[in-house]
Write a protein that binds this DNA or RNA. Structure first.
Lengths: 129, 129
DNA sequence: CCTTGACCTTCCAGTTGCTGGAAACTTTAT
DNA sequence: ATAAAGTTTCCAGCAACTGGAAGGTCAAGG
């Protein structure tokens, strides 16, 4: 199949597929005589795997590691496990951070009482109380 | 004062200060005879304002808008108010997204029972159950 | 047969918010 | 006098794409 079909099946833009190949996340696609890239079913699966990982905000570097890990069936999956755990930790930290942000922003948003810059509570707070 | 002193007082790297000037967030600094940038107290305040906004993950574009808004004291602060509200909304959406991510990742992390790639629950789930 | 439009290719540039480093200058300290 | 630290500019790179230009290819319709 050609790149746009793969793109549709995996729900990943064709442009992104080429990019993944360029950075070595996907191995170089076979080419037809006219130079077009040709893909198979297996590529749909690989790409879906990548997409699911990206949905979890796992970095392309980590995804690369996980794909490499899948090559050797009997190897321990410590790497994969660690990547998920680290990602989970990052997500928790980021979420906690955003919770604090939400608090600060809510307070700020509530401090705009009068409608003039010179009396704007938001600006007063941001300029140092 | 020179750039590194400003950097220390506002807790913003000198490099970043030059960058802010370059993109027009800070107006071009005065220069001494030797070409060094010179700053005053007011610049500390401006930079602190920027830093507080950045801590709230407000974009440089939005910060630019807010700084512009401060010029005219009698103007309405609708812009400022909107920026904070939109930022709050973005933060909430991002946080909710991260909460979902955390759930998915927690489930994933718990599904690595055996220690071989071929039996790794994580990989099985990520490759499509 | 020709053209139109949809695909495909490569390459270059831009996004956001910096950060690192090189090369050249000045200033400060010893 | 010399070395270290601070400053300048400019160029490059990070992540993960995305947009667009310029050009080749292919199938359908007139």
């Amino acid at each position: 199949m050609k790149i746009n079909q793969l793109a549709k099946q995996a729900d990943v833009p064709a442009k992104t597929i080429r990019y993944y190949e360029e950075i070595g996340l996907l191995k170089p696609a076979e080419r037809a005589d006219n130079g077009y890239r040709i893909y198979r079913e297996a590529d749909v699966h690989t790409l879906l795997f990548i997409r699911r990982c990206r949905d979890l905000q796992i970095s392309l570097e980590d995804i690369k590691t996980m794909i490499a890990a899948q090559v050797d069936d009997s190897a321990p999956c410590t790497n994969v496990d660690n990547i998920i755990k680290q990602q989970l930790e990052r997500v928790r930290v980021a979420r906690d951070e955003l919770n604090k942000l939400e608090q600060s922003l809510t307070m700020l948003a509530n401090s705009c009482k009068r409608n003039k810059v010179s009396e704007c509570g938001i600006l007063h707070k941001l300029t140092g109380e």
